[in-house]
Structure formats: C-alpha cells, structure tokens
C-alpha cells in the first residue's frame, strides 16, 4: 500500500513529468546563461577566467603557506574548487529557486522539479566552462592521465544525480521556511573548510576518518580522484550511491505530501 502511494503520489508524477521535459530544462538553463552574460565581451568565459585567477592566486599562496609541493597541490586545488563551485552554487541557490520563480509557478502549468532541474543544468553548464581551467593544469603539471581518468564521467553523473534531489529537497523546504536560504548562505563558508577542497583527506594531521563523515567530501572525491588519475576508494562510491537512493526516497516521500502546497507558499 505504502509503495503504491509512493509511486502514484503527486510528487512522483511531478518528477516523472519534469524528466520527460528534461530538454526544456536544458534549453532554459542555456538561455539563462546567455542572458546573464549578454553584452559582455567574454561572456560565459568570465566563469573560466574567474576560476583560473582563483586557482593561480590560491595555489601559489597556499602551497607556500602549507609548504606543499605545487605540482601535487595545484591540480587537487583546481579540481576541488571547480567541484565546490557546483556544490555550493546548487545548494545555496536552490533554497530560493521556487520563490524566485513564484510568478511562473502561479501563472503557468510547469512541473516544479523542472525548475530545480533548470538550476542544476545551469550549474552543469558553468561546470563545463570551468573544467577548461583544468586542462592547462594537466598539461603543465603533468597530472597522470590514465584509464581511471575515464571514471570522471560516471563521477560527474553521480554528482549531478545527487545534486538533483538535493536541489529539489532544499527548494521544497526553502519555499516554506524562508530562513533556510540565509542559513545555508551562512553555513557554506564553514562547510568549505570542513570539506576537502583546499586539502586532501590524507593531508590532515589528525585522523582523516572525521572528514569522511561529511557527505560533501564523498561527492567531491568521486569526481576529483578520477580527475587526478586515481580510482576513488570503494567507500566513496558506496556512500555516493547510498546517498542517491536514500536521498531520492526521502525527497520524493516529502514531495508527495507537500508538492501541492508549494503554489500557496511562493
């Protein structure tokens, strides 16, 4: 009975309908990106440039400060920053995704998850722009490119499948509780230091186990390890897949009960 309710609920129907119109979300994400950089000469390449400058500056400074070899530090920092931008961007922006699109929700018949997908796709577009920065890093610092590098593809796939439920869940909560948007914006800098962005888990002077309690660490490593030419440890894949299943189940269960209220909240 509970299974049938779960599958035939309004939230599940919304998600299925949104996935069928995935191309629409992709088009909207692309036109958002175009609109944002209209009238600038470099356009979306500003994203790339911004990341490049961040990497050069932080890479030089932190490798001096932490006294780490630049050839190992800069590739891991670059990959870390690129992935972190996606994570932080999706998490903070999704809290207000339904509220900002309130007029669309009240006037057009769009499935709500489509709006979350639009957000996630927009960050995917940004991510691909930023990934360009990583190419010279690979060439000049001779990062090993091996067969395990191909694991980037399933890694990115797992990352974005997870981000999709995270965006929907936070969007749902954020449209009812407006404090969540500010709470997340306040917490993100803290999470930045608690997540292995600037460092690798094995750099830590104390036990690295602690860092693995942070689910974001797993989402970062599942893409970063392959980028550095290494196969991620099995527990990273286990956690990421586990998050995917549990996350989606919880999100859809909640979305089933609350989906029809969102139009009243925004």
């Amino acid at each position: 009975m509970a299974v049938i309710d779960f599958i035939s609920g309004p939230g599940m129907a919304d998600v299925i309908q949104s996935l069928k119109r995935g191309r629409v979300a992709l088009y909207l994400a692309w036109s958002d990106t175009k609109a944002r950089y209209r009238r600038s000469v470099l356009g979306p390449l500003w994203l790339t440039l911004g990341t490049a400058i961040g990497v050069v500056g932080l890479g030089w400074l932190w490798s001096e400060l932490l006294k780490i070899d630049r050839a190992t530090f800069i590739p891991s920092l670059t990959a870390g920053l690129i992935i972190w931008q996606v994570l932080a961007g999706c998490i903070t922006e999704s809290a207000s995704v339904f509220v900002k699109q309130g007029s669309v929700i009240r006037n057009l018949q769009l499935p709500f998850f489509l709006l979350s997908l639009q957000l996630v796709f927009r960050h995917l577009v940004n991510f691909l722009h930023n990934l360009v920065v990583y190419i010279p890093v690979v060439i000049f610092l001779s990062v090993p490119v091996t067969w395990s590098t191909l694991l980037v593809v399933p890694g990115v796939f797992l990352l974005f499948l997870n981000l999709a439920w995270i965006a929907l869940l936070i969007g749902l909560l954020g449209s009812r509780f407006r404090d969540i948007e500010y709470l997340l914006a306040t917490l993100m800098p803290l999470l930045f230091f608690l997540s292995p962005v600037l460092y690798r888990p094995n750099y830590l002077p104390f036990s690295a186990h602690f860092i693995w309690l942070n689910p974001l660490s797993h989402l970062i490593e599942v893409v970063r390890d392959p980028l550095l030419g290494v196969v991620p440890p099995w527990y990273v894949y286990a956690t990421v897949c586990g998050m995917l299943i549990v996350g989606w189940c919880i999100t859809i269960a909640l979305f089933n009960t609350r989906r029809n209220r969102i139009a009243y909240w925004v």
């Binding site: 036109s31 609109a35 944002r36 209209r38 699109q101 007029s103 669309v104 006037n107 057009l108």
Partner: peptide
C-alpha cells in the same frame, strides 16, 4: 499575469 517567465535580457 502575462509575461511571467520572460527574460528581459534576451
């Protein structure tokens, strides 16, 4: 409310 979802920059 017509015009919902329109992007003025496009």
């Amino acid at each position: 409310e017509i015009g919902a979802g329109m992007d003025l920059e496009l």
